[in-house]
């Protein structure tokens, strides 16, 4: 009797039933005959083990993040089509998290704090330092700069950095720390944009971000020199 049962379990019709039932079994339905057959039939046992292995390996495949430019391109198209109604300025947009993280907020906070400190009574006022005041208002208005403008702005930043380094010891320590955190954050953004530009020199959006980051940095350095190193 036992031998007959085993023969039945190993028969072709049992294999056909196994093939019909395997999906339901893998979906969590109760199929005791399927397991009995798998125990007696090497072919079906192997199939069950393989499919279970494929399922578990597939479930462990990690999702991947798209590159930043995907959102940047989507956003740009939505703005051009008038679908997005932006309420904020460029740097407040939450579209490129790593480009935005602490920099714009910190830079804005520093500028505001500097103005408040400067105007507050009892604040130590340092002697004024002459700075290369060559950043024209028109440059700040631009979202895109020609390569020669960008080059000129880089030179200005270098001059401002020189002046800042020479005089930064005059800053209040806490203010200096805040400035330098903001400058470091801006430098990170600049490096990130430069890395993207190296891979994709024609990426207009990144060029725009890079221009903005340079402008922000120049403004920040200028504000440190104008308002604090006196």
């Amino acid at each position: 009797m036992k031998e007959e049962e085993n023969q039945e379990l190993r028969s072709g019709s049992a294999c056909a039933r196994f093939a019909e039932d395997i999906s339901a079994y893998l979906e969590g339905e109760d199929r005791p005959q399927l397991l009995s057959h798998a125990a007696a039939c090497g072919f079906c046992q192997c199939m069950l083990a393989d499919i279970q292995l494929i399922r578990s390996a597939s479930a462990e495949l990690m999702p991947e993040d798209p590159p930043l430019k995907v959102w940047a391109n989507v956003r740009l198209a939505l703005v051009e089509e008038g679908i997005i109604r932006s309420r904020h300025g460029f740097w407040r947009l939450p579209s490129l998290p790593s480009l935005l993280r602490p920099m714009p907020m910190a830079a804005a906070a520093v500028v505001v704090a500097v103005i408040i400190l400067f105007k507050a009574p009892g604040v130590v006022v340092h002697p004024r330092v002459e700075t290369p005041n060559v950043i024209h208002a028109a440059v700040f208005e631009q979202s895109y700069m020609r390569p020669q403008d960008l080059q000129s702005l880089k030179q200005t930043i270098q001059q401002l950095e020189g002046a800042y380094s020479a005089n930064s010891t005059l800053l209040e320590p806490s203010l200096k720390t805040t400035y330098e955190k903001s400058l470091a954050s801006l430098d990170d953004e600049i490096h990130e944009c430069q890395a993207i530009m190296q891979e994709e020199p024609q990426d207009e959006l990144t060029r725009e971000y890079l221009s903005r980051a340079y402008i922000q940095k120049a403004q920040l350095l200028q504000s440190a020199l104008d308002y604090n190193l006196r």
């Binding site: 999702p63 991947e64 993040d65 798209p66 956003r75 109604r85 932006s86 939450p94 579209s95």
Partner: peptide, 25 residues
Amino acid sequence: QHGEEEAFAALFEIHKRRVYSLCLR
């Protein structure tokens, strides 16, 4: 649906991994 940019950005953030992974695969 009212055109708020933050909402579009947040929806993109929530679903970007699954969408991109599906496209990639």
